[in-house]
Design a binder for these strands. Structure first.
Length: 562
RNA sequence: UGGGAUGUAGCCAAGUGGUAAGGCAUCGCCCUUUGGAGGCGACAUUCGCAGGUUCGAUCCCUGCCAUCCCAGCCA
């Protein structure tokens, strides 16, 4: 049964942990993970890594994955975000079955846990102001001091917590705190807040609560309640693990999930932080969370990326505890590889130069056959009408070509893809000396792209009929940021100073007529140019707008750079 | 200067007490009606540094260096 296609991907340290757990029959041989976003923004590629990890691991080991919204802070959260998250995880191709949960589903249980801690003398109501709490917490190098409210009686704590719950105190005036260790070298253990007062309307529980549990008091217990076995999160939570474990220990819960941390994803030429992405949206640097330049899942979707390409990316980059920045080229490789297999080919001229073929008859009914996708023998062919005047790419002509330039030049012959050999006879310029038109001749015997005399033509260029072609809006995208690391800025500057002012160029291209039938999200390769998809929002029936997903590899451009 | 982590090629990343996988990028060559795709080849005498243990260390030990995270009533 050994088969190349089914061979498991290489191991990472989390898989190794799971394999070991399975060997020891820990958790009765079960693997259950969860993806727990806070609904306070759209998902980005960093989340995609986590999603693929969590769902991928469970799938590989025959387990399950829950989708859980970590919605413990009503002032930052919104249903718009939960909707977008659900859509994005689905689009990536993952299924949580009927296990869609919210941390807010557990508010009653978490409240009971808090009561239990108070009754066990492990939690107290603190009346320090936020400033006092901060002051008493100490610093990285100095221990903290106990709050003066630390040793209240259980009865008093119960009474005060009840009043907190009933809304008898203003926001910020009290907190419920765990009684742990004010001199712990781990700041998280210096009597962390369990509940805080926030008279805010929650997107699910409405005004039922005016106190809300903190992340640390919520996450482990939620994992436990759902029977999560492996709670995978990012490195910045390493310091929280002792607290995660402490709550589950003192609460004497029936099971105790294992928190495992991995390094979050960084990619060059972009930012992956909800706060910064929110700022780009709010301040109008991009056109929404799904702007095709955004590193959000919805942005990539709109840009023309496929779920397969993103899953492949997540698999290729690996999972470790080492901070790293993945090169953008890996992502581009993934999408090109997928699109090369599935994208229908088409001809489009992005930067047109008119060509008149002087010996070609007017009004000739001449339909040429073009292959829809050379990588897919089932994709068939289509007919494209040829004409006396056509457009070619400006780049495909040079008056004084360098060595090894295979394209059109005065006196040189080139192949028009799927059509004829043409030879450049005359160059017409405007008053500024700019080339505006080429006069060529064609060889009727070369129809289809081969000459019966067997003569070789090095270059093949694409074209669109000036008579039968159509025009369409095309959006060319470039990196959102000019700097490899947008956050690496000098004093007084921010990542915004690294924004690329030319990240979007909108042009009108000449395209073969078939392209006007493109439906939203349809993906094409414009031959020799790049991969494009019909924009999901701005395309209208019969009038698509094309987004450039990614350019084709261009070894000629590389050669010219040297 | 407290605590927690990390360091293998330009970028990711396997790996083990027995002589450094793989991918991306890069560079050659072949092939090609996309300068695309594809094929073939090159690319770490060395694993942050310095010692030690060992027949043998990237792996074990000691020390050092560098980087990241933590002082929200955010997650």
């Amino acid at each position: 049964m050994e088969n190349k296609d089914t061979q498991p991907a290489s191991n990472n340290f989390i898989k190794s942990i799971i394999i070991e757990d399975l060997k020891n029959n820990k958790n009765n041989g079960k693997v259950h993970t969860r993806f727990p976003p806070e609904p306070n923004g759209y998902l980005h590629l960093g989340h995609a890594k986590s999603i693929c990890l969590n769902f991928g691991l469970a799938k590989e080991f025959g387990g399950l994955t829950n989708l859980r919204f970590d919605d413990t802070n009503p002032v930052k959260e919104d249903v718009e975000y939960v909707d977008s998250i659900i859509e994005d995880v689905k689009w990536l191709g993952f299924d949580w079955g009927d296990r869609l949960y919210y941390a807010s589903d557990y508010f009653d249980k978490l409240y009971e846990f808090a009561l239990q801690l108070i009754n066990d003398g492990l939690a107290y109501v603190c009346e320090q102001t936020p400033e006092e709490v901060k002051l008493y917490r100490g610093t990285l190098t100095e221990p903290g001091r106990p709050s003066p409210f630390r040793d209240r009686s259980i009865e008093e704590n119960l009474e005060l917590f009840k009043k907190m719950t009933n809304g008898e105190f203003p926001d910020g005036s009290r907190t419920l705190r765990a009684k742990i260790d004010m001199s712990s070298p781990n700041l998280n253990m210096r009597d962390p807040v369990i509940y805080r007062i926030k008279k805010a309307t929650h997107h699910r529980t409405g005004d039922k609560w005016c106190i809300y549990p903190m992340y640390d008091f919520t996450h482990g217990q939620s994992d436990m309640l759902e029977g999560i076995t492996h709670s995978i999160c990012t490195l910045e939570f390493e310091d929280h693990r002792p607290l995660y474990d402490w709550y589950l220990d003192v609460l004497k819960t029936p099971c105790h999930p294992q928190q495992i941390e991995f390094a979050r994803l960084n990619i060059n030429y972009t930012v992956l932080s909800k706060r910064k992405l929110l700022q780009l949206v709010k301040e109008g640097y991009v056109n929404g969370w799904d702007d095709p330049r955004m590193p959000t899942i919805s942005g990539f979707r709109r840009r023309g990326y496929t779920p397969q390409s993103i899953r492949d990316f997540a698999e290729r980059i690996g999972v470790t505890k080492a901070e790293s920045t993945v090169d953008y080229s890996v992502l581009e490789f993934c999408i090109r590889e997928d699109l090369n297999k599935i994208a229908q080919r088409a001809m489009a001229v992005v930067n047109p130069l008119k060509v008149t073929i002087e010996n070609y008859p007017e009004d000739n009914e001449d339909y040429l056959e073009a292959i829809n996708n050379p990588e897919d023998s089932n994709s068939g062919t289509r007919k494209i009408r040829f004409s006396k005047t056509i457009f070619i790419e400006k780049d495909d002509f040079m008056e004084e070509p360098p060595k090894k330039y295979f394209r059109l030049a005065p006196g040189k012959e080139v192949r028009l893809r799927y059509a004829y050999f043409i030879t450049c006879k005359e160059v017409i310029k405007d008053e500024n000396g700019e080339v505006v038109e080429l006069i060529c001749t064609y060889d009727p015997a070369s129809r289809g792209g081969n000459s019966p005399d067997g003569r070789k033509v090095q270059g093949t260029i694409h074209w669109v009929s000036a008579e039968y072609g159509k025009q369409a809006e095309v959006r060319l995208y470039d990196n959102l940021f000019l700097a490899e690391d947008p956050d690496n800025v000098e004093e007084g500057k921010t990542f915004l100073d690294n924004l690329n002012p030319n990240s979007l160029t909108t042009i009108n291209a000449w395209v073969e007529p078939m392209l006007l039938q493109a439906k939203p999200n349809d993906k094409f390769q414009f031959e020799r140019v790049g991969y494009f998809c019909a924009d999901a929002k701005d395309s209208i029936d019969g009038k698509p707008v094309f987004n450039r997903t990614v350019g084709l590899r261009d070894s000629w451009a590389k050669m010219m750079k040297k």
